[in-house]
Nucleic acid binder design. Structure first.
Length: 827
RNA sequence: GCCGGAGUGGCGGAAUAGGCAGACGCACCGGACUUAAAAUCCGGCGAGCCGAAAGGUUCGUACCGGUUCGACCCCGGUCUCCGGCACCA
């Protein structure tokens, strides 16, 4: 007999063409069916898939195919996060327009997706750089503006004096320009912000509702939002008519304030020092600070530097005069930009006080004999008893927080407040390849949004890419000049574009109605499809992307657009793909190309290996040997299925006829177990590695059966082969389609239902019971299943095990767990 | 520094609810097939000790301790690695 061969190349091309030509992956907006929205984070179209993509999209594809077999109407769309710096760099370096560069990359990646056999509904494809998409990104921005959540503020940007251009933070490393190595300076520019801080509390509170999210991600978001409670308090400054307001989380330490510190950029600094002998020193101090990059400035390792500015403040609690400093460790954009310093009970203040010889006055007693309050070696930051604190002496410091806050409120010199670490979102980018900010400036009317009916504000094409200047958009002859939407007079467009994170903050909503050119999406479609039931992507997006997407969804909900205020019900963050223990990277030379693997072993093998080697959320160590193992397994499947098919055919057998032999029953149990286990592992646990091992066990059982059965049951074999193909098909769809075809099925697997299993076939009459002595396994025996504790002990006694194990010893008690074990506890 | 997560054979990993530790795969070893090799099929494979063998026995889930009839799993402490935040007052 001629042996047929597993020709993956031919098989994969054949089925990919059929899936494409027959449009099998389209998703109808059929509101009568139960929906499932499964989404993987869309990629930046770099032009080449890497193994991380393969992993991400394989996970999503297996789940999609499974859910379709389970009968859901599954939305599984794909698109492109297509704006961004690499396209612009390509334009500068090679003279290619970012648009054509991006288009070419999309085409190439689309082809690679198809080669992996992924089931996307390409009818809903979006690319954030297309005007029919970014039109709505602009529309959302205008809604933000109209609701008072977008505003303009002066802010320093990174500026490379040699390249004469603005640099993104990612383009600055170690304080120097990534391209030319010149130290990066600062330039003040008017920039747009979104008021995400208005949503801080809700973004924090609603994390509690995200049951399907990993705790790790929720925690990272909580920390990022960084809520802290405390109080603000006013300090008088001698010879100055304004009060200095500070924020503290430790009002209980107010009596221990021995100096004050303002951020160097604090507006009072100029007023307090102009015309004094300190004016020059302050100017020098500020000048030196400007040479530090943001990263250095905010690093905890940097030496604390400060300067006394010749003024004294008054501690409102005890009237004590304390000197006022400016220092590099106080940030203007947190709290009020000024602090009260309590060196005895704050690590940073302690360090600063020691360096500058400032007083250290303890006001919290640790009640610890090992700590000498008169000679502190480090700040004591924990709770204790209040001392040196007037009427508050003797109070527990935790109660003191509230008591002092109440006192401040009563005296009208302060109040309880909440502060967030989260800052407003700076969205202006001095770049070409992004969504134009649809704002217009008129001398008379100020800033106004473009009229909504005029959207999109198109990116102009008459632009030069020199790599210099503020933004390439300034070189356009046509873009900047326009007329004011309010008065009709001459006006100028905003030349900055948006941070690309805005583009990706709402794309999941657009998929629900991607071709709509009347509105952003229809409410009916969004109501049916949202929320995303399962979102899958890299953990590197745990904070920014996922927080921004939540923010956008909440805003769109508030203005009556989105039907939900949280976008993603369940989140899976897949682990990285490693090689030799390190992330694959060009510089390490450990990159494995997906295309090469597909050429050599086929997409099915690549998918199978990557899902088998590790659970999805964990890191995956690439192994060439492991890939060969997966390939070997698929050949093994091919062989057993085609051989059994030759031998038994598929059409005429019936399993129910003959009585089952023990071998038959074992195979039947293996089949039912595999169907149950694989369905559970994919559907409930998202543990694809154990699902695959269960399929391997089933295949092993088939081989064993063929070896052992004297007169094989043809019906049973047929059912086993059928179910094997079905449960393997989400993982390796091409191979399974081919086998499905070979074993006589007309319809494609895309429309086949997931197989059923019988619980009855899984149960066996006899169960092996473990017998332990003091918790250690000493023997085993077979008992009827379902025996209660007493019955089990009796059965163990009947077979003589109990006597043998307890001979000459006294039994304290016996524990029996039905269908599992008997444990004898000896005295 | 603060906050998380993880440590299981030579390797990737399994043990879903506190109940036989090591499923499945890789590597390795042996057998069958073959003139031979590859491929394939079958079998073995945590460590120590006793035994010619069958088998027996002790130890074993980073380390120390606890709870429990019973702990990879729960609790307390320690170490190591990974990740997040990093002067946030």
């Amino acid at each position: 007999m001629e042996q047929s061969k597993y020709d993956f190349k031919k098989i994969e091309e054949k089925w990919q063409a059929r899936w494409r030509d027959e449009g099998l992956f389209g998703t109808p907006d059929d509101f009568s069916r139960e929906k499932y929205y499964l989404l993987e984070m869309f990629p930046y179209p770099s032009g080449k898939l890497h193994m991380g993509h393969v992993r991400n999209y394989s996970i999503g594809d297996v789940a999609t195919r499974f859910l379709k077999m389970k009968g859901y109407n599954v939305l599984h769309p794909m698109g492109w996060d297509a704006f961004g710096l690499p396209a612009e760099n390509a334009a500068i370096q090679n003279g290619v327009h970012p648009y054509s560069w991006t288009k070419d990359n999309i085409t190439a990646m689309h082809r690679q997706f198809e080669r992996l056999g992924l089931t996307y509904d390409w009818n809903r494809e979006v690319a954030t750089c297309n005007p029919d998409y970014y039109r709505w990104t602009q529309w959302i921005f205008i809604q933000f503006y109209k609701n008072g959540l977008a505003y303009k503020k002066k802010n320093p940007v990174n500026w490379c004096p040699s390249c004469e251009t603005v640099l993104a933070n990612e383009q600055v490393s170690g304080g120097v320009c990534e391209r030319c190595g010149t130290p990066v300076g600062k330039r003040d520019l008017e920039q747009w912000y979104l008021k995400i801080t208005d949503y801080a509390q809700r973004l924090l509170d609603d994390i509690d509702r995200l049951d399907g999210w990993p705790d790790k991600v929720k925690l990272m978001q909580r920390n990022w939002i960084g809520r802290s409670t405390g109080a603000e308090a006013d300090f008088a400054i001698k010879g100055f008519d304004k009060k200095l307001r500070i924020f503290t989380t430790r009002p209980d330490t107010l009596f221990g304030v021995t100096y004050m510190v303002l951020a160097p950029e604090h507006p009072y600094v100029k007023e307090l020092t102009d015309g004094t002998e300190y004016e020059g020193k302050v100017a020098d101090f500020l000048h030196n600070l400007q040479y530090l990059s943001d990263i250095d400035r905010s690093s905890a390792t940097i030496e604390k530097e400060g300067l006394f500015i010749g003024r004294f403040a008054v501690n409102p609690m005890n009237g004590r005069d304390v000197p006022v400093y400016i220092a590099n460790y106080v940030l203007m954009d947190y709290g009020t930009g000024a602090i009260m310093a309590v060196p005895a009970h704050d690590t940073r203040d302690f360090e600063f006080a020691v360096k500058y010889g400032l007083d250290i006055v303890p006001v919290i007693d640790p009640n610890d004999p090992d700590i000498d309050l008169d000679d502190l070696k480090e700040a004591f930051v924990a709770e204790g008893t209040m001392i040196n604190s007037g009427d508050f002496d003797g109070m527990n410091s935790r109660d003191g927080v509230d008591a002092v806050s109440a006192y401040l409120e009563e005296k009208g010199i302060g109040e309880r407040t909440v502060n967030f670490r989260l800052r407003d979102w700076l969205i202006s980018r001095q770049r070409y390849w992004g969504t134009p900010i649809p704002m217009i400036y008129c001398e008379k009317c100020g800033w106004t949004p473009e009229k909504e009916e005029n959207l999109p504000v198109l990116l102009p094409t008459d632009v030069e890419f020199t790599g210099k200047g503020e933004s390439p958009l300034t070189t356009s002859k046509t873009f900047r000049e326009t007329s004011c939407p309010v008065c009709g007079g001459s006006a100028e467009r905003e030349i900055d574009t948006m941070d690309t994170f805005l583009d990706s903050s709402w794309y999941f909503l657009r998929y629900t109605d991607a071709r709509n050119d009347e509105e952003i999406f229809s409410p009916e479609n969004a109501r049916y499809w949202m929320p995303v039931d399962q979102y899958i992507g890299g953990v590197e997006h745990a904070i920014l992307h996922l927080l921004y997407a939540r923010f956008f969804t909440k805003f769109l909900y508030d203005i009556g657009r989105s039907p939900v205020d949280e976008p993603f019900s369940r989140l899976l963050t897949q682990g990285m793909v490693l090689k030799d223990g390190a992330k694959m990277s060009k510089s390490l030379g450990n990159v494995v190309s997906p295309e090469e693997i597909i050429d050599k072993y086929g997409a099915d093998t690549a998918r199978l290996f990557i899902l088998f080697a590790s659970p999805p959320e964990k890191e995956l160590e690439w192994s060439d040997r492991g890939v060969e193992g997966s390939y070997r397994f698929l050949n093994r499947v091919w062989r057993i299925v085609t051989e059994l098919n030759e031998e038994f055919g598929y059409a005429d057998a019936d399993a129910s006829g003959a009585a089952l032999t023990p071998e038959d029953r074992e195979l039947d149990r293996a089949r039912n177990y595999a169907v149950k286990k694989v369905g559970n592992d994919i559907g409930e646990r998202f543990n694809f590695n154990t699902a695959i091992s269960a399929i391997m066990e089933f295949v092993n059982a088939l081989y064993r059966y063929r070896e052992a059965a004297a007169s094989p049951n043809a019906g049973l074999v047929r059912d086993s082969v059928r179910d094997l193909i079905l449960i393997l098909s989400p993982f390796t769809p091409h191979l399974c389609e081919e086998l499905w075809d070979i074993t006589g099925h007309e319809e494609t697997l895309c429309t086949a239902p997931w197989p059923e299993y019988e619980e009855a076939a899984l149960a066996s009459d006899e169960i092996e019971i473990v017998v332990q002595v003091n918790g250690k396994v000493k023997g085993k025996f077979n008992a009827d299943s379902g025996l209660d504790a007493a019955g089990l002990v009796a059965a163990a006694a009947d077979c003589g095990l109990l006597d043998r194990l307890t001979a000459g010893k006294e039994v304290a008690k016996t524990v029996a767990i039905p269908d599992r074990l008997v444990n004898i506890v000896l005295k």
